[in-house]
């Protein structure tokens, strides 16, 4: 599948120096996207959290110990998206017009081939039917469909917010969105303002500028998936954590 460049390319930059690992993004994401809880949330192999927090340390003993967090949404890989080409019933696709990798729950047959193909563990399978204790179903968002058992789901870059922003723009007789008009729930909620979201194709956008930061990097960059989620860290050991390096290969910035 060849990547034809679309007009927009939404992406995200997460500043790991600012991230405190508070987990607000994970919670906001779950609330925004109608994520259900499972009976045993300690079963970490089967819980669902589109925005997962990975904790990493430099492995040194106290007092030199340093800790950092990798908030990991779906990377929305731009090049030969690993999950898209393998999906047999075309339930997941990249929209080349805006770069968002979609997942259609009513199309998904639950073969889980995409989970096998994704190296970021960003895809989650619904092992149970959605469970919303009595009363909580009233807090579900009507803009995001609730998933049934037996389908795969993942971060959608809060795609419904793009739709909402577009409708607003149309009502105001505009076709183009302004930078910051469409942001994801995790971006909006991050208390440390560590997350920036916007159009990577727009050279004036905040996110495009930050993605060119000298300390910006992506996860598993050498595999060639071209993720649209960038990270920034001033710590060499954190940047080294993001990819597999041969001994003596890593070049500190």
């Amino acid at each position: 599948m060849k990547a034809t460049e679309g007009k927009y390319k939404y992406g995200m930059v997460i500043n790991l120096d600012k991230c405190t690992g508070c987990g607000t993004c994970t919670v906001a994401c779950a609330a925004e996207n109608n994520l259900s809880v499972i009976r045993d949330e300690t079963d970490k192999q089967r819980t669902i959290s589109w925005m997962q927090l990975f904790k990493v340390t430099n492995g040194k003993p106290f007092p030199d110990t340093e800790v950092s967090y990798f908030p990991r949404p779906c990377m929305h890989c731009h090049n030969h998206t690993p999950c898209v080409s393998v999906c047999p019933p075309t339930a997941t696709k990249m929209d080349y017009n805006n770069g968002i990798v979609s997942q259609i729950y009513t199309r998904c047959i639950g073969c889980r081939y995409c989970q096998a193909a994704c190296p970021y563990q960003a895809r989650y399978f619904n092992w149970w039917d959605g469970h919303f204790p009595k009363g909580t179903e009233r807090y579900l968002s009507p803009e995001v469909s609730v998933r049934m058992r037996g389908v795969v789901e993942k971060c959608s870059f809060c795609h419904h917010r793009l739709m909402r922003a577009k409708e607003q723009a149309y009502a105001e007789d505009r076709r183009e969105l302004e930078d910051g008009e469409y942001i994801t729930a995790c971006t909006e909620v991050c208390p440390a303002e560590a997350i920036t979201f916007g159009d990577l194709n727009d050279p004036d956008s905040k996110v495009a500028k930050l993605s060119k930061h000298p300390q910006a990097f992506r996860l598993l960059e050498r595999i060639g998936t071209e993720p649209k989620v960038y990270y920034i860290s001033s710590k060499d050991w954190v940047r080294r954590m993001a990819d597999n390096y041969h001994p003596n290969e890593f070049q500190p910035v």
Partner: peptide, 18 residues
Amino acid sequence: IGQPIRGWFIFWHANVHS
């Protein structure tokens, strides 16, 4: 497969690259 009733989607909405 998680949704056996939808198995026929593979044939009807086939992704020929998979």
